[in-house]
Amino acid sequence: MASQGTKRSYEQMETDGERQNATEIRASVGKMIDGIGRFYIQMCTELKLSDYEGRLIQNSLTIERMVLSAFDERRNKYLEEHPSAGKDPKKTGGPIYKRVDRKWMRELVLYDKEEIRRIWRQANNGDDATAGLTHMMIWHSNLNDTTYQRTRALVRTGMDPRMCSLMQGSTLPRRSGAAGAAVKGVGTMVMELIRMIKRGINDRNFWRGENGRKTRSAYERMCNILKGKFQTAAQRAMMDQVRESRNPGNAEIEDLIFLARSALILRGSVAHKSCLPACVYGPAVASGYDFEKEGYSLVGIDPFKLLQNSQVYSLIRPNENPAHKSQLVWMACNSAAFEDLRVLSFIRGTKVSPRGKLSTRGVQIASNENMDAMESSTLELRSRYWAIRTRSGGNTNQQRASAGQISVQPAFSVQRNLPFDKPTIMAAFTGNTEGRTSDMRAEIIRMMEGAKPEEMSFQGRGVFELSDERAANPIVPSFDMSNEGSYFFGDNAEEYDN
């Protein structure tokens, strides 16, 4: 993207840094990872977990959730003011799984939030270390993106479920800051804005008074975040219109849905970061690795190297396929839920299948599930090659597409044709070009129609051997075009429920 120079890199967003050079960025990201790792080690000690239990991804998720809940100030305040039966607002906890007599047992633990905050700050040299908290939120978000298709949420806001490739980060909490905003897809931002506008339509006082002023500035800020994701002048001009509207209503909703559809071809720039579970960072720190000293990046080879040398386990339900569970977590670790499966298959070195073909449910185990038949197995999170994460949407291309997802959002900077089903997408653009945004709409449609099938995206960008740390010898991959490109292809993934 041309304006790259004016933006802070995501590592800076990730670490609240002012302008830093590459070495400083690597050190501050490393410091953040160190903090998460030290916190995780301490929690495993508190909970008396064995090494194996500490490497269980379900335990990692519970521990991450506990610290996120302990620092969720708004919710904590709300819980104190609106006490609900049987919930102690000062405590947080969740299921911890232990191996007892050759069987997995679930144990519900409860801790004072104050105590968890103390352990977290102690692991982070006394700081609140917001960057580390956001990092864990993005890992949870990436896992949700890989596990669930947001059909219901899309339909509720009037969008087409086939636009799911635009929904990265749709389950990120509001408090995820600049680093969170960077990884949100165009569809996620559109959905947040539509929800806001709908509230304004239904509630006369939404934009009024002292609160209304705050609401208005939040609305304009979200519009600017979305505008910054678009790469064409016409899309940005249309966002200006939406932002400046005196009284946002149905016309703005129409414009936003139009823009979301246009992003299936004229893709937005959305950041991709490899955020790993805390149970990967903990053992690495415990083994003596100093992330701050060595430096770390979320968008280069580092996460690949770390996963190459990590042992992570997962509980497996009786009829689940461990290899499929591994694929789910591998995609989440690489922030690749909406990437082209052919690119992923090449990088991973084994075939990556669409969601609907995987015999696996989510990673988390519900409290009512029976533990008797639970097994555990090693997650295979290694890769054959590594590639640089991208934040450009890439230019655009036609490809055989599917009944489910009709476009992709690249996660890796790797040369390819970008699949999208042009006739299906263009069919949504018939007729409606009147109104105050008509010239911009016409211009956007013209650009979409001009998108050429034979153009290559990320020209000359390749993948790298894991021994090639400096990215000196790019390998331009070859793809098996007979395979499906979309992950949520004609899909039956479970729906995400809060």
Rank of each mutant, 00 (worst) to 15 (best):
residue 3 S to T: 05
residue 4 Q to S: 00
residue 8 R to H: 08
residue 13 M to G: 00
residue 15 T to K: 07
residue 37 G to V: 04
residue 39 F to Y: 03
residue 49 L to Y: 06
residue 56 L to W: 06
residue 67 V to T: 02
residue 76 N to L: 12
residue 77 K to E: 05
residue 79 L to M: 04
residue 80 E to H: 01
residue 91 K to G: 07
residue 92 T to R: 07
residue 99 R to W: 10
residue 103 K to I: 14
residue 104 W to C: 05
residue 109 V to Y: 07
residue 114 E to G: 07
residue 120 W to R: 14
residue 122 Q to D: 13
residue 130 T to W: 07
residue 132 G to P: 03
residue 134 T to N: 04
residue 136 M to S: 06
residue 137 M to I: 04
residue 139 W to R: 13
residue 139 W to Y: 04
residue 139 W to K: 08
residue 142 N to C: 06
residue 142 N to V: 04
residue 143 L to H: 04
residue 145 D to L: 10
residue 148 Y to N: 06
residue 151 T to V: 09
residue 154 L to W: 05
residue 162 R to G: 12
residue 163 M to Q: 03
residue 166 L to A: 15
residue 168 Q to Y: 10
residue 168 Q to I: 07
residue 171 T to I: 05
residue 174 R to H: 07
residue 175 R to P: 15
residue 176 S to L: 04
residue 176 S to E: 11
residue 182 A to K: 13
residue 189 M to S: 00
residue 193 L to K: 03
residue 197 I to A: 02
residue 206 F to P: 01
residue 206 F to T: 01
residue 207 W to D: 10
residue 221 R to H: 12
residue 222 M to H: 13
residue 222 M to E: 12
residue 224 N to T: 00
residue 229 K to M: 11
residue 231 Q to M: 00
residue 232 T to V: 01
residue 234 A to E: 04
residue 236 R to H: 06
residue 246 R to E: 09
residue 251 A to Y: 10
residue 259 L to T: 07
residue 271 A to N: 09
residue 273 K to Q: 09
residue 279 C to L: 01
residue 279 C to F: 05
residue 287 S to N: 14
residue 303 P to E: 10
residue 303 P to N: 07
residue 309 N to E: 13
residue 320 E to I: 08
residue 330 W to H: 10
residue 361 R to T: 04
residue 362 G to A: 05
residue 364 Q to P: 00
residue 366 A to F: 10
residue 369 E to Y: 05
residue 383 S to E: 05
residue 388 I to P: 03
residue 410 P to M: 05
residue 410 P to L: 14
residue 412 F to H: 12
residue 412 F to K: 01
residue 416 R to W: 12
residue 418 L to A: 01
residue 425 I to F: 05
residue 437 T to I: 15
residue 439 D to K: 09
residue 446 R to L: 05
residue 451 A to D: 05
residue 451 A to K: 00
residue 451 A to S: 04
residue 456 M to G: 05
residue 457 S to L: 00
residue 469 E to L: 05
residue 472 A to N: 12
residue 480 D to T: 01
residue 484 E to H: 08
residue 485 G to F: 13
residue 486 S to T: 03
